[in-house]
Design a protein around this nucleic acid. Structure first.
Lengths: 210, 210
DNA sequence: AATAAAATGTTGCTTTTGCAACAATATTTT
DNA sequence: AAAATATTGTTGCAAAAGCAACATTTTATT
């Protein structure tokens, strides 16, 4: 899967025309700032122009879960949430965000038709990609043991990184979070995988031996 | 959330025109028949015209997991899968399916513009809805104990059914599957919830006492 | 370069969960 | 209506995972 951006295949001048037509704003956020606090209720459509941001869920027991990590060219909006929310979008680095009304995207005027169509095509593909990555997380989460969760996760990573010498793209604490398991129990299981010769690992660097 | 269909808001005559323009076919499947076997690799776009179908993953240990239950007006296609597949779409009842090339949906001709735009809007919303329900499952799956998974699930159900006297919309076996837990352990936990006075339940009929 | 703060690694103990093997009801099919 | 099949309900026991409390190492911050 190729990591594309929502403006791919659209001339820069056309992008500018579209954004003007949409009355789009560019907003700047410092690292750690809250970009959006009621994710499922916004009528706006957001595009990350530069930087990184996460969709985060705050659990009532005080912990937080990263629902999605977003990069340049990624999108978010009401489609990113659930009924029940507590979902926030938080800047992970200094981040620039393009914002406009979702309706503008849908209600096509007669202008810039081709660019507009391409944009919608890209948005559709972007959302489909999100669906794929959610699907992937569900497949990992439905594995019963921590061992099986790890192996499935490593498998996906290996496919994406096209090598058996994978690097976990975030901290092991965050991985435990992603797998929804206790970190120490996960560490124990990683050790077991090493002992059983299934992997050879040091921190986030893992060699798959199967 | 209102359960809409992908042709909502489009005149029947316009729907027919669009489908002709797309060279769409209607295919009929008997209950249990395989509608699609390589979900992530299709270039077709599918709409359920009547009946029900499930997206199913076959696990290598012989068990199967229902990834998604689909009804009249629901859509599926390559966006429904992962890299790693083993995903199948299976008819749950006798089912009629409309099929056409995904590209036809995207590459707009000059004809039926308004209807076409509305259709794309609906498709976008449909996919966003799928995202919401996947999100919801992730939120349930990330709860640590079976008890918490049940309570979160019941909470969502209660919101959707707008009552505390909820009915689980499928068998308890399927629920265990959805929660990715052992059925007997889940039954034990349902008993515990009854004993602790948090619910009053008989089979799939559950009364929330909180 | 020193200090502070995160992240990683480890272990004993307790709780939760899965597994297996049933019995009892419901629901379909013939 | 009888038989066959599927679903629900229950339990003892073993395995897995969570929790808590640390030590160690790495990465950031001053």
């Amino acid at each position: 899967m190729y990591d594309f951006m929502v403006f791919d295949g659209i001339e820069e001048t056309d992008v500018k025309k579209l954004l003007t037509e949409f009355n789009a704003l560019t907003l700047h956020y410092k690292k750690e700032a809250t970009i959006l606090s009621n994710v499922s209720n916004t009528s706006s459509f957001f595009i990350i122009q530069s930087g990184k941001a996460n969709i985060i869920r705050y659990n009532f027991n005080g912990t937080k879960t990263i629902m999605e990590r977003m990069d340049k060219g990624d999108i978010f909006g009401s489609f990113s949430g659930t009924i029940d929310d507590d979902l926030y979008v938080i800047a992970d680095t200094d981040t620039d965000v393009i914002v406009f009304e979702y309706n503008k995207l849908i209600q096509r005027s007669g202008k810039n038709i081709d660019a507009h169509n391409k944009l919608i095509d890209n948005v559709l593909n972007k959302i489909a990609d999100k669906l794929t990555s959610y699907n992937e997380r569900i497949e990992v989460l439905t594995e019963k043991t921590i061992r099986d969760k790890l192996l499935k996760f490593f498998g996906y990573l290996s496919k994406k990184q096209i090598t058996k010498a994978i690097v976990i793209p975030y901290t092991l604490s965050d991985l435990a979070d992603y797998l929804a398991v206790d970190r120490s129990a996960m560490m124990r299981e990683i050790k077991n995988l090493n002992d059983d010769g299934l992997i050879e690992s040091k921190g986030r660097y893992i060699n798959l031996k199967y």
